[in-house]
Write a protein that binds this DNA or RNA. Structure first.
Lengths: 255, 255
DNA sequence: TAGGGGAACTTGTACAAACAAGCGAGCACC
DNA sequence: GGTGCTCGCTTGTTTGTACAAGTTCCCCTA
């Protein structure tokens, strides 16, 4: 089922993880890999391009590719879905809807998600039994019914939407910064008001660019970090200056 | 000088920014683009792969590619170098070395950077005249002399190292989380002790995987955010659970 | 022994061709 | 009018070839 180049990429990735290609060592040449897998050089190049995008190997024209680091599990789903990430990492986790209601979309939300009656949900997530994440999500009107049909303790909303509605979230934009815990955050997470939280704001869309949800997730400091490995070729993470005037005053919820 | 596919990618990117291809619209087919640029389809595919990696366009087999969002400047350098990022964004910025000294590498540093006498530097960076970033960097022994030769108010260390030593930082691993401001952080940034900071810990290496520096950067909340746009195909950012026991106790500096 | 000059190797770019797989629209049929 | 199907278009995968550009290492020379 999987494409040829993916199989080769998997093989190489496993070789790196297992130590067959230690960090700092050279990968076999493209020609050698092509011979070994009985594939064309172009196919091998697609495979190593995958690894390079993951930051596992580096390359310079003329010199052999070098192993930069050992692998890690990584998938799109894991960045978007707390549950899928936690499960992949073998963590014990849970979740509970604290509050949920429909309301008309604000102007900003209409721009992001489309108009109509949006559904806003407040969830608390736990990791290893401890509360670590307050999730304030606004769902677009067209997915609201599917979300409302889910049980309050639904572990993975993303997974459930895929199972019940065939909905695939394919693209996302994330903004990561630090904020002080508000009164509600503090109460739910069991920290003092004003203590640091790691905030991830995101907007998710389907393949076609249709907006699904917009969320404000706040992690207790010391519980979760974001990790990125980048190379000079491909680098999707950038800093953004925040307008100091209109700054963090804009809240999704007033409650 | 630039490769053919880069020219095509630039052309498309500009078309997206200028509005010739509005968000949500369809891109011309590969065949059409190939005809228009007088290039082979494979070359065009390389070009659109660049845009897809940037999160600008999405694609599904069988359907035309769709514009997902307008562009933003993004380069590897901008994530690694505060100065290069600020300059590209048209911000007014500055920097000053607060403290600098050599000392033997600790065990952890030897593992990350190699042994010998490392150089640790404490810098304060300003944006639009306000202090926003405390940067605690440890340089590997082999670059220490070059760093020491720089003036205390050097704007861009990365740029200076490239100019003077031909040193190119090509890969990096970043860990992003939130921490409370310590006494020194608070004093330098002009915030209260315990207020939230956005922390970026990174290790940078050259093309060959030779470690250059390891740094702990702390941004004042509300000044800078990290942004990432990801797609189901390419997704370099992942969450990491933090061991709650050995947590943030490990500091680079004791001062 | 130190240095220069190559030769062999390796990655980067580009083109051409073919088939597979998925999408969308129009058409025929009920 | 609605449903289902087929056909053309578009993207995905793979192979093969050719040349450009950069690296590595050996050998020969001064």
């Amino acid at each position: 089922m999987a494409a040829r180049y993916e199989l080769i990429a998997d093989d190489l990735r496993e070789g790196i993880i297992s130590g067959a290609y230690p960090v700092g060592s050279q990968l076999p040449s493209e020609a050698e890999l092509a011979r070994r897998h009985g594939a064309a050089r172009g196919t091998v190049r697609q495979a190593v391009a995958v690894l390079a995008a993951e930051g596992l190997v580096g390359s310079r024209q003329g010199a052999r590719r070098i192993v930069l680091g050992a692998a890690r599990s990584q998938s799109f789903a894991e960045l978007h879905s707390f549950a899928q990430w936690a499960r992949a990492g073998g963590h014990r986790f849970g979740g509970q809807v604290i509050e949920q209601r429909r309301r008309p979309a604000s102007a900003a939300e209409t721009a992001r998600l489309g108009g109509g009656e949006v559904l806003e949900v407040l969830r608390l997530r736990t990791l290893e039994g401890e509360p670590v994440l307050v999730e304030r999500t606004v769902y677009a009107a067209w997915v609201a019914p599917d979300v409302e049909a889910l049980p309050a303790d639904c572990e993975s909303v993303t997974q459930a939407l895929y199972d019940t509605a065939g909905l695939v979230c394919a693209y996302g934009e994330h903004l990561i910064d630090a904020v002080a815990a508000g009164a509600q955050d503090a109460r739910l997470l069991g920290v003092r008001r004003g203590s640091p939280l790691l905030r991830q704001r995101r907007t998710t869309t389907t393949h076609e660019g249709r907006p699904v949800e917009s969320s404000d997730d706040r992690y207790r400091a010391g519980s979760v970090a974001f990790s990125i490995r980048n190379s000079i070729g491909a680098n999707p993470l950038v800093r953004q200056a925040i307008d100091l005037r209109s700054a963090s005053g804009e809240h999704m919820f007033e409650s």
